[in-house]
Nucleic acid binder design. Structure first.
Lengths: 114, 114
DNA sequence: CGGTTTAATTCTACAATGTAGAATTACGAT
DNA sequence: ATCGTAATTCTACATTGTAGAATTAAACCG
């Protein structure tokens, strides 16, 4: 079984996690900020958006334009949400790493689930 | 700081973990087996070897031919070890994911460190 | 010795993901 | 209309992911 688990890539994983953690406030800018703040890894917006696009093509995230109501200038935001298949794929990737790192010395202690 | 953390890819991470966990018995075949047994994800030897090669180019693993002493037929084994920079990179990648997944609901519980 | 079996690695090729920067779109205000 | 601002889309190329075929080499056997 599970002939093609098709684990997400490293950056895809990070982006999906950012979307998941941001809840209903995930869009290009906030995703990038979350990534930078949490991981210290600076990335370009282009990187974030193309990854988001590819994830959407795979059905791992969905997107919707923001309704009017904001008074600020500038273009409308495109909000992203993690889909059920996206969550599943994310879990598979995380589980694979967790399984592999079990009992290996010299690795950081895993994060506590909240 | 850390302008270019250069996180390892998803499969690279899995391969490095396999090498780490196998200790001094890590070579192409055992790496593949460890991967399959632990993650359920089948991979080709070609995939494993080219990843191992690329990791060596980056200095994340080192390799050495097996000394004689085996009485089995077949070609000599090439054993791999994780280097210090490799462990560092591995840790950074794992930490990045751990940071991002902290407190996000719907994710699997992290593995217990042993 | 020369062929056969066995174990393992290397080579070749292409698809998918990673990544950045420039260009573009669209809105509100002047 | 045009300007500044906020955000997204486009274009392009480098790196990583992945498989399968080809190759290498040691031990064994007659």
């Amino acid at each position: 079984m599970a002939a093609r688990p098709d684990l997400p890539g490293a950056f895809e994983t990070l982006v999906m996690l950012a979307v998941a953690r941001l809840g209903d406030t995930a869009y290009g800018m906030t995703v990038r900020r979350a990534l930078e703040e949490r991981t210290g890894h600076a990335t370009s917006l282009g990187a974030v958006y193309s990854t988001l696009d590819r994830l959407e093509t795979k059905g791992y995230v969905s997107s919707s334009e923001s309704e009017g109501g904001d008074d600020r200038g500038g273009r409308a935001k495109r909000f992203f949400r993690l889909t059920a298949p996206g969550l599943r794929a994310l879990n598979q990737g995380i589980e694979a790493v967790d399984k592999m790192r079990e009992g290996v010395p010299g690795l950081p202690r895993p994060a506590r689930a909240t």
